[in-house]
């Protein structure tokens, strides 16, 4: 069972000083270890009770999402639905309903699986990750742009004792369309073999703005920068082809228990092509 403590500050202090103590939110990553693994696991500190990690709110030019927000809550929130349909789409495809009721955005990001479904979405929405830690008797915040958060396979910019408080998502400009596609092993309760998110806009039949990111094709979720620049300025059909093949060139997926490198690479290209092609040719 997870332990609790009175304040977030105390929690950060304990996490920084007690070896073997780990934060837990929904527990959907931590609690599914087999009894054999569990027998050897350390202790958990429950953060889900702290107000600092909760809530969804529009603040100036961005929307704040607390780390403890569940995927069910994301799907239900009016402001998320209005501004971030790709995040809603991702949230609705994580696990199944039971998982969505417990699993949190913060846990998904901190877990840092290259297959995490919300991760490419946060990348194309250019989120800022807000971190917190204890400095003496104060809780200090640090803001890390999403592009700099994942530093290696399951490695993040989190310092020891630092926790994710939440995310700031800049409001998308007018006409920015969002897309999300997950390729899993089955209809639900499936970890992605390839997952792609897109934010983009066309004008006069040509791609004007494009941000693409993918998961499960590299050690971390990746922005597909070459695909983006290959497509911008081109007429939609040509842009889709260019983005698809550039995406394949800039990634080197691997064979693993869920899929093959060859499949992932080809399907990444096809899904990128499909998503770009689905943009409205003229969003004015």
């Amino acid at each position: 069972m997870a332990e609790r403590c009175g304040s977030l500050l105390e929690a950060c202090r304990r996490l920084a000083t007690e070896p073997g103590l780990r934060p837990i939110l929904g527990g959907t990553d931590l609690m599914v270890a087999s009894p054999h693994e569990r027998a050897r696991q350390g202790r958990w500190l429950d953060l889900s009770c702290f107000d600092e990690m909760r809530g969804i709110a529009e603040r100036g030019g961005s929307v704040w999402i607390g780390a403890a927000t569940t995927f069910t809550a994301l799907q239900a929130d009016a402001s998320i639905r209005r501004h971030f349909p790709a995040l809603v789409a991702a949230a609705s495809e994580v696990g199944g309903w039971q998982i969505q009721n417990r699993a949190t955005l913060g846990g998904n990001v901190a877990n840092a699986s290259p297959a995490g479904d919300s991760l490419p979405v946060l990348a194309v929405l250019e989120a800022v990750v807000v971190l917190g830690s204890a400095a003496g008797d104060r809780l200090v915040e640090r803001r890390v742009p999403y592009a700099g958060f994942h530093v290696g396979y399951r490695a993040t910019a989190l310092a020891p004792g630092e926790v994710i408080l939440g995310f700031e998502l800049p409001l998308p400009g007018p006409g920015l369309e969002q897309r999300f596609q997950k390729v899993g092993t089955r209809q639900a309760q499936a970890i992605s073999k390839v997952v792609v998110a897109l934010a983009g806009r066309c004008a006069g039949g040509r791609v004007q703005t494009l941000r693409l990111a993918a998961g499960s094709v590299a050690a971390t979720p990746v922005r597909l920068r070459q695909a983006e620049s290959a497509a911008v300025g081109l007429e939609l059909a040509a842009a889709a082809e260019a983005a698809g093949s550039a995406a394949r060139q800039e990634t080197t997926p691997i064979d693993d228990v869920r899929s093959t490198a060859a499949y992932r690479s080809a399907v990444l290209g096809r899904v990128v092509r499909r998503l770009v092609l689905s943009l409205t040719p003229d969003s004015e």
Binding site: R186, Q187, A188, V257, R258
Partner: peptide, 23 residues
């Protein structure tokens, strides 16, 4: 069942995939 040198690569339900009601 995926084996590598006789070792199970997918010895859990997260990776040994059976159909759910939705499939």
């Amino acid at each position: 069942i995926k084996l590598d040198q006789g070792r199970y690569l997918n010895d859990r339900l997260a990776t040994y995939i059976i159909p759910t009601a939705m499939d």
